[in-house]
Design a protein around this nucleic acid. Structure first.
Ligand code: MN
Ligand code: MN
Ligand code: MN
Ligand code: MN
Lengths: 208, 208
DNA sequence: TTGGATTTTTAGTCACGTCTAAAAATGCAC
DNA sequence: GTGCATTTTTAGACGTGACTAAAAATCCAA
């Protein structure tokens, strides 16, 4: 309910600054820089998003998306990237010219429009900048988005793409279990990992 | 400058309710009905448009577009109808489904976008509802829009499409000069007409 | 031409989203 | 641990664009 260009752009900022990792807290000042407004404005808006159930706000700590908020953010990213694709692929814009226009088009409200546009463009998997286009259900194509292992729901086979905040100890412990960049993790192994790892391992879904 | 969806929609309402005749005064309550808001809201907005130099407001009488306002309104109508054409022609929407979506798309701000869209669609002359699409310079294709003779600038050869507020006397006086529905008026004749006729004769430009 | 109904504007309020200035919380250096 | 610099939130204000209620202008009918 209750959409608006501003709410939507704040939601997107939250998503973007967490690099798509729903578990990451984002500071209001980070968002302020990203959005080109002052921090108090972001605080106010984050409180609104929180009331709408789209974000969680821990005062003096930061904000992060709820599951609902993430879905909305993804639908915005989807629209943004589909429009960018349209502008480049069909209207012949240069890839560097399309961001600001898509920034406006993404707020046009019509599910039917997005789905028809997607079909018209041949269900593209990525936008002109190479960024992946979320599917209508909010998931990415396989080999799509990188996320924190904790965010993998349901837990499926995935590939290690990086480690966040890994101390030497952690890294060697992971190595000892056969985990390294590019290695594949199986659901049955993941359940036996130390819980702290779940927030540290950056992964993407592996092909079946 | 200082555009906004609301200002733009009021501008369009003014244009639409005057049936494109820049000389016609439109009441604020008419606009209110058209826009789905209350009359005081329209009064306030019309005063803003007046400050911006886009409309003229004669209190307790009505509002009408200035030359600048008319140009802006025409560019909005152009965008609206081009997007409608895109939605039907390219995305396969039914012609009855596209109005509300175009109502949003028309506010996207990018000259480049409009012109590329126009070219992409093959410079269509009319939208899916048969309404003419203004050209980028704010004029219509020949045989396009009907206007009051007084609005013809410059005065060119045109065809009579109707008479507004014509008393029997006026009509017979016109007949006496050889004027009837469909007859062609030449610039040199027009200059000899009684001035009152200029606001009564509805015409459209005739092919050269 | 006068009075009442109707239309339109003004006055005052509100929600939204922004700002600046001040207060509060945090966290880092010593 | 205390104190100070930094970050963040709160407080208070403003502009936009909506509303309702009241006042003003207009129109029309007797
Ligand atoms: Mn945007
Ligand atoms: Mn992109
Ligand atoms: Mn509109
Ligand atoms: Mn149309």
């Amino acid at each position: 309910m209750s959409k608006s260009t501003q709410r939507e752009d704040h939601l997107k900022a939250l998503y973007a600054l967490a690099h798509g990792h729903a578990s990451t807290w984002v500071s209001t000042s980070q968002m302020a820089v990203h959005l080109g407004v002052k921090p108090p404005s972001v605080t106010a808006m984050v409180q609104v998003l929180s009331e709408l159930g789209w974000a969680e706000h821990r005062p003096y700590h930061g904000a992060r998306l709820t599951a609902t908020g993430r879905k909305l953010a993804l639908s915005l990213v989807r629209k943004h990237r589909l429009w960018e694709t349209f502008l480049v692929q069909r209207l012949g814009f240069g890839w560097e010219e399309v961001h600001d226009i898509a920034e406006q088009l993404e707020h046009v409200d019509s599910l039917e429009l997005v789905e028809r546009l997607d079909a018209y463009l041949g269900h593209p998997k990525s936008d002109p900048h190479g960024d992946p286009i979320p599917k209508a259900d909010g998931t990415f194509h396989p080999e799509g988005e990188i996320c924190v292992l904790a965010d993998l729901d349901p837990v499926v086979r995935c590939k290690v793409k990086g480690v966040r905040d890994g101390s030497d100890d952690t890294l060697s412990a992971m190595s000892a279990r056969g985990i390294s960049l590019g290695s594949t993790l199986l659901p049955e192994d993941i359940t036996t990992f130390p819980v702290t790892w779940l927030d540290q391992l950056l992964v993407c879904k592996a092909q079946e």
